[in-house]
Deep mutational scan, measured.
Amino acid sequence: MQIFVKTLTGKTITLEVEPSDTIENVKAKIQDKEGIPPDQQRLIFAGKQLEDGRTLSDYNIQKESTLHLVLR
Results as ranks from 00 to 15, higher is better:
1 M>G: 04
1 M>I: 04
1 M>H: 15
1 M>E: 03
1 M>V: 07
1 M>S: 05
2 Q>N: 11
3 I>E: 00
3 I>K: 00
3 I>W: 00
4 F>M: 09
4 F>Q: 14
4 F>N: 05
4 F>T: 05
5 V>T: 02
5 V>P: 00
5 V>G: 01
5 V>C: 02
6 K>Q: 09
6 K>G: 09
6 K>E: 14
6 K>S: 14
6 K>P: 01
6 K>W: 06
8 L>F: 12
8 L>I: 13
9 T>E: 09
9 T>V: 06
9 T>L: 09
10 G>R: 04
10 G>P: 04
10 G>E: 07
10 G>L: 10
11 K>R: 07
11 K>T: 10
11 K>V: 07
12 T>C: 02
12 T>A: 07
12 T>N: 04
13 I>S: 05
14 T>G: 11
14 T>S: 08
14 T>A: 09
14 T>W: 07
15 L>S: 00
16 E>C: 02
16 E>M: 13
17 V>Q: 09
17 V>C: 02
18 E>D: 15
18 E>M: 15
18 E>Q: 07
19 P>G: 07
19 P>E: 14
19 P>A: 12
19 P>T: 11
20 S>T: 10
20 S>F: 10
20 S>P: 10
20 S>Y: 15
20 S>C: 02
20 S>M: 09
20 S>K: 06
21 D>T: 15
21 D>H: 10
21 D>Y: 14
21 D>W: 12
22 T>I: 10
23 I>A: 03
23 I>W: 01
23 I>N: 01
23 I>P: 04
23 I>F: 03
24 E>H: 14
25 N>P: 02
25 N>D: 15
25 N>H: 10
25 N>Y: 10
25 N>G: 05
25 N>E: 13
26 V>L: 11
26 V>G: 00
26 V>M: 10
27 K>Y: 05
27 K>E: 01
27 K>C: 02
27 K>V: 03
27 K>H: 03
28 A>D: 08
29 K>R: 13
29 K>W: 09
30 I>N: 01
30 I>P: 00
30 I>C: 02
31 Q>R: 07
31 Q>F: 11
31 Q>M: 08
32 D>S: 13
32 D>Q: 08
33 K>T: 08
33 K>C: 02
33 K>H: 14
34 E>R: 04
34 E>C: 02
34 E>I: 05
34 E>H: 05
35 G>P: 04
36 I>H: 12
37 P>R: 06
37 P>F: 13
38 P>N: 08
38 P>E: 14
38 P>H: 15
38 P>I: 10
39 D>M: 08
40 Q>K: 04
40 Q>G: 14
40 Q>N: 13
41 Q>F: 06
41 Q>C: 02
41 Q>K: 02
41 Q>W: 05
41 Q>G: 07
41 Q>Y: 09
42 R>G: 15
42 R>Y: 15
42 R>E: 15
42 R>S: 11
43 L>D: 00
43 L>N: 00
44 I>V: 14
44 I>P: 00
44 I>C: 03
45 F>S: 03
45 F>H: 11
45 F>W: 10
45 F>Y: 09
46 A>L: 12
46 A>S: 08
46 A>E: 13
47 G>Q: 06
48 K>H: 15
48 K>R: 12
49 Q>A: 12
49 Q>V: 08
49 Q>Y: 14
49 Q>C: 03
49 Q>R: 06
49 Q>W: 12
50 L>Q: 00
50 L>I: 13
50 L>N: 00
50 L>V: 07
52 D>K: 05
52 D>Y: 04
52 D>G: 07
52 D>I: 10
53 G>M: 08
53 G>D: 15
54 R>T: 05
54 R>L: 14
54 R>Y: 12
55 T>K: 13
55 T>L: 10
56 L>I: 14
56 L>G: 00
57 S>L: 15
57 S>I: 08
57 S>D: 15
58 D>T: 05
58 D>H: 15
58 D>A: 11
59 Y>K: 01
59 Y>V: 03
59 Y>M: 04
60 N>V: 11
60 N>Q: 06
60 N>H: 10
60 N>M: 09
61 I>P: 01
61 I>N: 00
61 I>G: 01
61 I>F: 02
61 I>Q: 00
61 I>C: 02
62 Q>Y: 14
62 Q>V: 07
63 K>P: 15
63 K>D: 09
63 K>S: 09
63 K>W: 09
63 K>L: 14
63 K>H: 11
64 E>I: 07
64 E>Y: 10
65 S>P: 02
65 S>C: 02
65 S>G: 10
66 T>Y: 13
66 T>F: 07
66 T>L: 11
66 T>M: 11
66 T>E: 13
67 L>H: 01
67 L>V: 09
67 L>K: 01
68 H>M: 04
68 H>K: 03
68 H>P: 01
68 H>F: 04
68 H>D: 05
69 L>G: 01
69 L>M: 04
69 L>N: 01
70 V>I: 07
70 V>P: 01
70 V>L: 05
70 V>D: 06
70 V>A: 04
71 L>V: 11
71 L>Y: 08
71 L>H: 11
71 L>G: 08
72 R>S: 14
72 R>Q: 09
72 R>F: 08
72 R>V: 06
